[in-house]
Design a protein around this nucleic acid. Structure first.
Lengths: 333, 333
DNA sequence: CTGAAAGCGCTAACAC
DNA sequence: GTGTTAGCGCTTTCAG
């Protein structure tokens, strides 16, 4: 930058003012501006984000803390964040919590130290009270995506899990299913809300409901279905709390020789890309990922209306049922 | 940091020396060190990476440029990099090239400007000569993973695509298949090498070989299989160049009413998590992702032996065939 | 409208 | 062994 200043014959401050571009209270002579810009280009000047950040300006870094990067759903979410962020000229610093909430806290510290301009939390981190606490004392805007609709003290964007789950269950009921099972991962965030909706729906004939907990991966889904099928009166339909679980269940149904949807209906949640390519294609709930991410970034970047009276905003987007081949009429008993 | 110095009654430099921890040429009094550490902890001191980086020290940032973050295989790779990096205390800055090589260049500039301590390239970027050029003039260590085995001027870690593909084809041949098709994505990097191996293997009866190009996603795989099946003499086995393509093909086979592996054998490449849960489980080639990432990071961090005589290193890891249910004996004609 | 100067938080010569 | 000092590259008052 000094070079640019020298080459142009103006002072560094002027160069800074020009290059920062922002509406400095003080206007600059148009020709000076042009000369500076030209020289900067010629000299291949590139601002040093470190120095900028050090001085308190924006670092153009967006911190992302994800609980489980392994999860294909979150992998897609990270992609969406990355795309959306780059459109705003931001770079993404990825923090992986490896499923441990303490790590998320550490990460948080790291990202704050790195002067990220904003932080996005992917997935439910509320089981770690200290995180939320620290977050509250933070000066940089933050938004939690897919935190589960129970609102915490930080702004969040969530999906209406209840509506999605009820849509699935109504669909199943219309097909004549009564004995329906729910497969859930850890009772956390979105999954928890989906389970609650399931219990609510089945409240009038709870004897037909069963719930299996498992790890939220393909094997978990497979194992859960295995246990369900070993029951004396197995369900005729399985509503999995995520697509990954559903895909695992589909595979186990296959190895057990069950035909889907003739012998068993299976549904997922999220509509990850693989859902449409499952065999048979998975009936699931489509998550408006792009919209949720866009909404979240808008909240942290465009609308820093934090300490407003009504508390942090918690928009709730509506998912939609995607009807595909993995659900069919219940078998006549 | 000044606070810590004042609280301890020593100078800032001493604090720096203690906290940097590194083997400073100059030793420090044990009790001073302790007092400083204690005070730092008490005051909740956290170093400012920006200032550090500005001063020329390491930023503990690892830049990652990925061509296509959508690709589940690379999503897994990013995960591996993130895990491996965090074990070394590094944070990952993710740059997504959106499939465009020019973006990769821009990203490169950004990451360099951010003073990343090293850069990892995920996937083949060599179609953009300027990238490679710029890379050469760079001062920070860099490594390319899954670049395709044709070595460029930058250090890389690759997998032996030829060995993997030949293993697949031999397996298929042993099952009695002669009419074998290859489904490839863009003729880039690893995929290209796999195709070459395919052509090599089929060289003695090229009339039985067919090659379909498509986009490297689920739909691409499905469409390619569709075209293959419409041929007058369709193949009895399909070797897809990636698991994603294979999974897409599996789905199309299903919708076309073909039974795998009875009517058609299908193989993939990469062994992404979904491969094992496919219906039927996919015979594929396992990619040693963790090892490759670990090797790559070792190259950039532990062994900055750049300008050595023999040119940049290009270790080639060996993949292994995973035999599952999607391959079976060729149909008696 | 532009220049001079003071740091942001930290490290690394160089003294003592 | 420890303190002093000079910046890293930039933004930002405060004067001209």
């Amino acid at each position: 930058m000094r070079d640019v200043a020298e080459a142009t014959g103006v002072s560094q401050s002027t160069v800074s003012r020009v290059l920062t571009g922002a509406a400095t209270a003080v206007p600059i002579a148009p020709d000076t501006r042009e000369r500076v810009i030209e020289a900067a280009k010629r000299l291949g000047y590139r601002p040093n984000p470190l120095a900028r950040g050090l001085r308190g300006a924006r670092t153009m870094l967006l911190g992302v803390i994800v609980r489980e990067i392994t999860d294909p759903f979150f992998a897609g979410a990270i992609e969406a964040v990355s795309i959306e962020a780059s459109q705003r000229g931001y770079n993404v610093v990825l923090g992986h919590a490896h499923g441990h909430a303490e790590e998320a806290i550490a990460l948080w510290g790291v990202l704050e130290a790195r002067h990220c301009d904003a932080i996005v939390l992917l997935g439910d981190m509320r089981d770690q009270p200290r995180l939320i606490e620290d977050l509250h004392g933070a000066r940089i805007p933050i938004v939690a995506l897919w935190q589960g609709s129970r609102s915490a003290d930080i702004p969040s964007v969530d999906v209406d899990n209840r509506a999605g789950m009820l849509a699935v269950l109504r669909h199943l009921a219309e097909l004549g299913h009564r004995r329906i099972a729910f497969i859930g991962g850890r009772r956390l965030g979105d999954i928890r809300d989906r389970e609650d909706a399931f219990r609510e729906f089945m409240a009038d004939h709870p004897e037909d409901a069963s719930v299996e907990y498992t790890s939220n991966d393909l094997e978990g889904g497979a194992d859960a279905l295995g246990r369900l099928l070993d029951q004396p009166l197995p369900p005729t339909a399985v509503a999995a709390s995520t697509d990954v679980l559903a895909l695992g269940a589909l595979h186990r149904a296959y190895t057990r020789g069950l035909r889907v949807p003739d012998d068993l209906s299976v549904t997922g949640f999220d509509d990850i890309p693989f859902a449409a390519a499952a065999i048979p294609a998975l009936t699931t709930v489509r998550m408006p990922v792009r919209e949720m991410v866009a909404t979240g970034l808008r909240m942290v970047f465009d609308d820093p209306s934090d300490g407003s009276a009504a508390g942090p905003p918690h928009p709730l987007l509506i998912p939609s049922l995607v009807h595909r081949g993995s659900t069919g009429p219940a078998r006549r008993p």
